[in-house]
Design a protein around this nucleic acid. Structure first.
Lengths: 205, 205
DNA sequence: CCTACCGATCGGTAGG
DNA sequence: CCTACCGATCGGTAGG
């Protein structure tokens, strides 16, 4: 029997997906409060009132997006596939994969910033509750099988990993919009990843 | 003769400052688009129309704040004071100072998130143009006087430093709002800083 | 610096 | 799922 995800979407599910996709595009461009339900309706190709058959409010659309569309669903399989021999190989390819993926599909980073900027992180708990149980085991396994890691705490490793990826992407947004773009070295990403892997300091310990 | 900054503020300057402070508090709480000019006026204790004697639009208020109130003005002196013998001492105290300062005065991190989430970074260039020339020399000097650093490029060092501080603060917001708060170790910040200084890997090179 | 106002647009709903 | 509408509120301005 087919997996749940493979069942062909009903008409209602398709409309719901249209609304979510329209909302993502508009939230990315203008943020949450500057996006109107009328804009979402127009982009999703239905009348304003039609949205309310699928979501009871604008905020409900946002919340649905932030828990359903988390990129771990695409990123984790790629990371697990790459693996690599040493912890260095593994983390280098994992950071590269995550950065590349979030760079080519930047919508979720933007949604996270909107979540913090406009909602004070009100939906973060719900998102983490769904996502952390999927991600944490990857880092738990990494710690068990690789002895070369500085910390044995999977939460800290996960946090440092996600934080590093976010910091790279955010600083890149600011830099590419500024004069620093022209004086930044070409291999910034490589150097930046090396800093994450080995620290800013050359010395050991 | 007194320095420029010491001149007693005129009435107009005081009102302008009242408006900026009111706007900061409201932007922090609700973001930019969810904050109305009427709320700003009320909090600044003048009539709606009065704001337009000082700023010609709501966006002009935001832009003024983001270039004028950058925390480097408070953080840099503290960092320069701390210094420390080795590069490790220096960077450890610098990260601690920056995190402590931005944690106790979280408004600017929030403004930056709003800037990216709601304006697509439109004012970032203007901000960096003012701020980078002040900050970059600190990292240039750090590179010249400390040989133990992994990179000799001041832009990358500055970027990794600012990015690290931001990543710590942002992930902490998400964690402290979620169930992860209770299973995160107490000394997270120390471990997190060590990762920045020495990398996730124990090994040298 | 305030009062009183403008047109536009908002999120949401009733009723079919 | 749409049409037509609600009251509320928005950013901004004229005129003093």
């Amino acid at each position: 029997m087919p997996a749940k995800k493979e069942t062909p979407p009903t008409k209602g599910e398709a409309t719901r997906a249209m609304i979510e996709d329209a909302a993502i595009a508009l939230f990315m461009e203008h943020g949450y409060h500057a996006t109107s339900m009328r804009q979402i309706a127009e982009r999703a190709e239905l009348a304003l009132g039609g949205i309310y058959n699928h979501f009871s409010s604008k905020e409900e659309i946002f919340e649905a997006i932030i828990v359903d569309k988390h990129p771990y669903q695409r990123v984790l399989p790629l990371i697990l596939e790459a693996q690599g021999e040493t912890a260095e190989d593994f983390l280098r390819s994992a950071t590269q994969i995550a950065i590349a993926e979030l760079k080519s599909q930047p919508y979720y980073l933007k949604l996270m910033l909107i979540e913090i900027a406009e909602f004070n992180g009100a939906h973060g708990a719900k998102m983490i509750k769904k996502v952390a149980p999927q991600i944490l085991p990857v880092f738990e396994k990494a710690i068990k099988t690789r002895k070369e890691l500085r910390t044995a705490n999977p939460i800290i490793l996960m946090r440092s990993f996600i934080g590093f990826v976010i910091s790279y992407l955010m600083t890149e947004i600011v830099i590419s919009n500024s004069m620093l773009k022209h004086i930044s070295p070409k291999n910034s990403m490589e150097v930046y990843i090396n800093i994450y892997l080995h620290g800013v300091l050359k010395s050991e310990n």
